[in-house]
């Protein structure tokens, strides 16, 4: 009995070292999320209800969700596609110094998301932006109202600004992971370069492209500051709607913010989970 107590104490003692960290996570991460989820499925008296989710099915919220998904999908696709080609161009650049500088630039610019970046786009492409006026007065080309940085198209341009370098950073290691031996084996066995890419290169890049796309999707879906600065209340996105329910800038029915938050939490959570699973699989196979 005493021996058992001693043994179990020895086994569990190391876990005590995790207590401060776990307590923090519980207080600032786990409990708030649980409370949020519970709040989304109960009314003001705490009775279980799905009324909040029914309210979320109103056209305003469905549209905001749809807008968010669309914007995320478009910017993630553009980011993935452009990132693939630009990543390859960087990877193949002969000068190592320049290659490293470009990677460093991607590293910095992907972190430029947010208010300052949004404002930089207003500076060049706002209704009185430098490029807008330059086009108008020097070339006689009116960008507005066909294009507007404060609208959907402007948001796409600003989002791709931080999506593209993120994809570049994700895809360059994938190109580096394509061993020289595979390409040379393929050529040695009589394949053309095109056959190498179709049969070996692309299939091996595909998981990285897919996981990159998912990460970019999540990156755009959760973004708030860029959209808030550029579009404000002109455009309906899920994160903007949730934000309004916090600040009270727009009056929402109670509980709707919670339900919207849970919906976006699930969307993002699934993306991060899928990303993680894909990466685990890649790690076990690409040896």
């Amino acid at each position: 009995m005493g021996l058992f107590a001693l043994k179990s104490r020895q086994r569990f003692a190391p876990w005590l070292g995790l207590v401060p960290f776990l307590a923090f996570c519980l207080a600032f991460e786990i409990i708030p999320i649980i409370v949020l989820v519970r709040g989304s499925i109960s009314d003001s008296d705490g009775v279980l209800t799905f009324a909040n989710y029914q309210r979320v099915s109103a056209p305003l919220y469905v549209r905001s969700l749809w807008n968010s998904i669309q914007l995320s999908a478009i910017t993630a696709s553009l980011g993935t596609l452009l990132g693939l080609f630009i990543g390859y161009a960087i990877f193949n650049w002969p000068s190592e110094r320049f290659r490293e500088s470009l990677i460093a630039l991607s590293d910095v610019t992907t972190n430029f998301a947010g208010a300052p970046l949004a404002f930089a786009f207003i500076v060049i492409l706002g209704s009185n932006g430098v490029i807008t006026l330059l086009f108008e007065r020097q070339l006689g080309l009116e960008l507005y109202p066909a294009f507007s940085i404060y609208s959907y198209s402007g948001l796409v341009l600003a989002y791709v600004y931080f999506q593209l370098p993120l994809m570049v950073l994700l895809i360059i290691p994938a190109f580096a992971g394509l061993r020289r031996e595979w390409r040379e084996s393929a050529l040695n066995l009589g394949a053309s370069t095109r056959q190498y890419w179709r049969r070996i290169g692309m299939p091996l890049l595909l998981p990285s492209l897919l996981s990159g796309f998912i990460l970019l999707f999540a990156n755009a879906f959760g973004a708030y500051a860029t959209a808030y600065t550029l579009a404000g209340s002109r455009l309906s996105l899920v994160t903007l709607q949730i934000g309004f329910s916090v600040t009270g800038e727009v009056r929402h029915e109670p509980g709707v913010g919670d339900a919207l938050a849970v919906v976006s939490l699930i969307t993002m959570g699934m993306c991060v989970l899928a990303y993680q699973l894909l990466n685990l699989r890649m790690r076990s196979e690409m040896r």
């Binding site: 061993r179 031996e181 595979w182 040379e184 084996s185 393929a186 050529l187 040695n188 066995l189 009589g190 394949a191 053309s192 049969r199 070996i200 299939p203 091996l204 196979e285 690409m286 040896r287």
Partner: peptide, 20 residues
């Protein structure tokens, strides 16, 4: 070109196509 020579090469290691 290497893909027209008809030489069969075995590399040091890891040269099998991992996706096949």
């Amino acid at each position: 070109a290497p893909n027209k020579r008809g030489t069969g090469m075995v590399f040091q290691a890891y040269a099998l196509f991992p996706n096949m």
